[in-house]
């Protein structure tokens, strides 16, 4: 297990290192001079040069890369051109919207999909199964931003149960915040829940035919107990992997969904930073998101090694 973990950690560090190089290189080809952007088109050449000097834009490429990466490691993500505040402050402020949103969506998707997947597998090829499968087909085909629009129309505009967008801030109390997050979370969760339901179902259908489930039935356990205490726990392993992957879909899904609901989160920040050419914010946010995704996948891998010893030897 130790060697397995070490090898995984080495892979993780290598992937993160390559990621920073790629992101830095891509951002370098971006057209547009940040200094000109800040000072405007009528700025004089010597003023522009002074600002470039101050921002460190005149230094050689590798020096800038190294100072950026050192900054990342020490938690110094640079200062936003447009907001003139440290990027880490911006992230701290916005993560309070995005993280709860992604977590609520993940919880919703899990709470919906596991029971539905088990039900579909237990009623294989009967009405409940066919109905659930048809619904998930639809759930996968619906773009989440369209679903979000329909939710707004239904629950915010017609029924006036929740606000149609915006975020009051956690100071306003828990209830108004949850009201602001519930529709976006449902919209984010729909496609993920559909995928997860299908995976739960097919994984459970596989385990239901395994010998130990038959043994459990043969030794006199009821169908229900054999299902829930023997088949379901084993069927959950592939589901866990997909949940890890889905976390990255949920995080990036916030780019669109936060724009639909005008939520001041990471997704909207990254979109605004791109349109404002606020390179340092874009760069740092993408690194943070990619790192989050890679680390979550790494943790899932590691958890897999703990659950299933056979995987350790493969690496």
């Amino acid at each position: 297990m130790f060697v397995y973990a070490l090898r995984r950690i080495a892979m993780l560090v290598a992937t993160l290192a390559v990621a920073t190089v790629v992101i830095f290189a891509v951002m370098e080809v971006l057209p547009g001079d940040p200094a000109a952007l800040i000072l405007g088109v009528e700025a004089r050449e010597d003023t522009l040069n002074a600002l470039r000097e101050q921002m460190g834009l005149n230094r050689p490429l590798h020096v800038r890369y190294l100072s950026w990466v050192t900054g990342l490691l020490t938690g110094d993500l640079g200062t936003s051109y447009t907001y003139s505040v440290p990027v880490s402050d911006l992230i701290n402020e916005r993560i309070g919207v995005t993280l709860p949103l992604a977590l609520i969506a993940l919880t919703l998707s899990t709470l919906i999909s596991i029971p539905l997947g088990v039900l579909a597998a237990a009623r294989h090829n009967r009405v409940a199964d066919v109905g659930i499968m048809a619904t998930t087909q639809l759930g996968i085909a619906i773009p989440n931003f369209w679903f979000a629009l329909l939710l707004v129309w239904m629950f915010a505009i017609t029924l006036r149960l929740v606000p149609s967008g915006g975020f009051p801030g956690w100071d306003a109390g828990l209830i108004p915040c949850l009201q602001a997050l519930i529709l976006p979370a449902v919209a984010l969760a729909l496609p993920q829940a559909s995928i997860l339901t299908r995976i739960m179902r097919s994984s459970l259908l596989d385990t239901l035919h395994d010998d130990y489930v038959r043994t459990a039935r043969a030794k006199g356990l009821s169908q229900r107990i054999a299902l829930w205490s023997h088949a379901v726990p084993n069927a959950l392993i592939p589901v866990l992997t997909i949940m890890g992957l889905q976390f990255s879909f949920l995080l990036t899904g916030t780019i669109i969904i936060e724009n639909v609901f005008f939520l001041p989160g990471i997704g909207r920040l990254i979109f605004q930073a791109i349109t404002q050419r606020d390179l340092i914010v874009v760069e740092s946010l993408i690194v943070v998101l990619v790192a989050a995704v890679i680390i979550v996948n790494f943790l899932v891998d590691l958890a897999y090694g703990v659950v299933d010893p056979r995987l350790r030897s493969r690496g």
């Binding site: 992937t15 990621a19 891509v26 990036t252 791109i274 998101l289 990619v290």
Partner: peptide
Amino acid sequence: NDFVFAFPALLSAVMITAI
């Protein structure tokens, strides 16, 4: 291949079209 997979596709597509 694994590396490209690690990048969230939507995020990168937004980045590419923005650049």
